[in-house]
Amino acid sequence: MAKNRSRSRIPVLAVLYIAIIVPIIPILMWSFSFRWTYPNLLPTWSPRAWDYVFSQSSIISAIGASIIVSTLVTGLTLIIGYPAAKALGTREFKGKTIVEIFILLPAIVPVISAVMGMQGIYLRIYLSDSLLGVVLAQTVFTLPYLILGLAAVFKNYNMEYEQVASTLGADRWRVLTQVTVPSIFPGLVVSCLFAFVVSWSQYLLTLMIGGAAVNTLPLELFALMTSQDYPVACAVSIIFILPVLILLGLTSKYLTTNGVAKGGINQI
């Protein structure tokens, strides 16, 4: 039986590696190309795209804007969502399923369905065409991921430690920083990472709420794709996914062992 398994393993692994690695090839090659005419298998190599990316101020400022927006969104999402995640993870109460579905709504309702009305309302409350408006709009869409992920982490968390600490005289702040956060830390990091990634890749929402005022990296990338400047678009794509992959590398062990994917889904 063991032999049987290893025989079926090789084709499965081959398909997995091809499916994930082959799509990286054209992005890498185009980013180092000057021109690439059919049917050449290799492009005319050139560092033009990379020179352009690092000298073009609009791209550099878009990287900065993306980092600022996604960091603010992640922080705000954590502050707003943390108490809700703790309540959902550690308590049973009436109407819990309805609350869960309500919180899940922004993750499942298509962005296009919500964003038209959001544009109108945000305009009325002076949030459109501003950084604050974009941050608040993105926070709505990152909340479900953070809350459901973190709630799952809290499911396996023992509340008694908190009670012991407070009986021993620790105030709320000390319980939070010295008991709760250390014991849920890996799950907390993965949940924040999910929120960051969801914010980092928003295109349509930023376009329609931010207008011309907020130019993040996805907006820059779509402008490049529309003008069919593939070499620069590919260089920007690589810059775009690098921080995310570094974060994945740091946290990948949490993803499969005790992380969000498992808990977040088991919880429901």
Partner: peptide, 28 residues
């Protein structure tokens, strides 16, 4: 330490989603 009420813990999230998401959906 008095335990925080469940609805107080849920309130910030429910308010944010209601004002910034549900109202726009109704508006649509």
């Amino acid at each position: 330490m008095k335990e925080t009420k469940t609805w107080v813990m849920l309130l910030p999230t429910i308010l944010v989603i209601s004002i910034l998401f549900i109202i726009p959906l109704i508006y649509t």
